[in-house]
């Protein structure tokens, strides 16, 4: 996808959906749209109906006060992909589950829950997936600490 095509796509998507707003510039070659947390599910459903039939990736990034949830949606008919992002406050980390729209979210949301501790409301089977059930903490959070973790020295 060329940047022009991507810009056009962003324009088209956001024009029809007031809940979406383009978030980031295209310098790294990805189209990114943001949405409020409360409107995530409805927006995702709209996008799915608009042709984004594939949920490629669900993940999160710890940005100190907030978690940025990143969904990568893909459309075969439009032959396009976008990133859908939403912010989740750290002390109130929940978001609607997209399992109903894409079963692909079933395991990926479990993984995000496991590693970040973000709750997915409406997920049918929200358990730890990669870590043991008795594991304490969510290791991909930046504040996760474990005495066994070796911090690399600053000099390299």
């Amino acid at each position: 996808m060329t940047p022009d095509e991507m810009a056009a796509l962003l324009e088209r998507i956001t024009a029809h959906n007031p809940r979406l707003h383009p978030l980031f510039s295209l310098e790294f070659g990805d189209a990114v749209v943001g949405v409020e947390r409360a409107e995530l599910f409805a927006t995702a459903a709209d996008l799915r109906d608009a042709g984004f039939d594939r949920l490629g990736m669900v993940t999160a990034v710890d940005r100190d006060e907030v978690f940025v949830l990143v969904y990568r949606l893909h459309s075969r008919s439009l032959s396009a992909a976008i990133f859908l992002k939403t912010l989740v406050p750290r002390d109130d980390a929940w978001v609607a589950s997209l399992v109903e729209l894409w079963p692909a979210a079933l395991w990926q949301e479990r993984e995000v829950f496991d590693l970040f501790g973000i709750h997915f409301e409406g997920h049918p089977d929200l358990r730890r997936i990669l870590l043991p059930d008795d594991f304490v903490g969510h290791p991909l959070r930046k504040d996760y600490d474990d005495p066994r973790l070796i911090r690399r020295p600053d000099y390299i």
């Binding site: 692909a104 079933l106 990926q108």
Partner: peptide
């Protein structure tokens, strides 16, 4: 942050 979108993970589901 690095995340790997693993096809084997998604397929195994």
């Amino acid at each position: 942050r690095m995340h790997v979108r693993s096809p084997a993970f998604c397929n195994l589901a």
